[in-house]
Amino acid sequence: MTLREIVEKLDLQVHAGAGRMEVTVARGYMSDMLSDVIGNAPIGGLWITMQKHKNVVAVAVMKSLAAIVLVQGRVPEEDTLRAAEEEEVVILGTTMSAFALAARLHDLGIAGD
């Protein structure tokens, strides 16, 4: 499934990277610990988190993540946005909880383990 389809189906907000919506996503990861994401998130996956500070962009680059989704209405900090534009990282957003979003994605066929 492409990012665009996911954004439309789940009514996600696009904070950064509106031009990179055709990427295909197969797997998801939910975590708020950078070390965990670096160690365990699937390459090219969709990362669900509460973390909105700049370091998330570095991690997304490192793991070639398709996108970061900030949950519970959290918005990226300014320098996070700037870094995201520079590094061409997609940042999405939703008011849903991480649990609900992971569950919906799971329903759409995005794999976890």
């Binding site: 991480a98 992971a102 994605l105 976890g112 383990d113």
Partner: peptide
Amino acid sequence: MKLFEAAGRLWARGLRTGET
């Protein structure tokens, strides 16, 4: 299991988050 998978399975069994 990872958090994502656990969330998907518990949701499918009817569990939900409380409101914030």
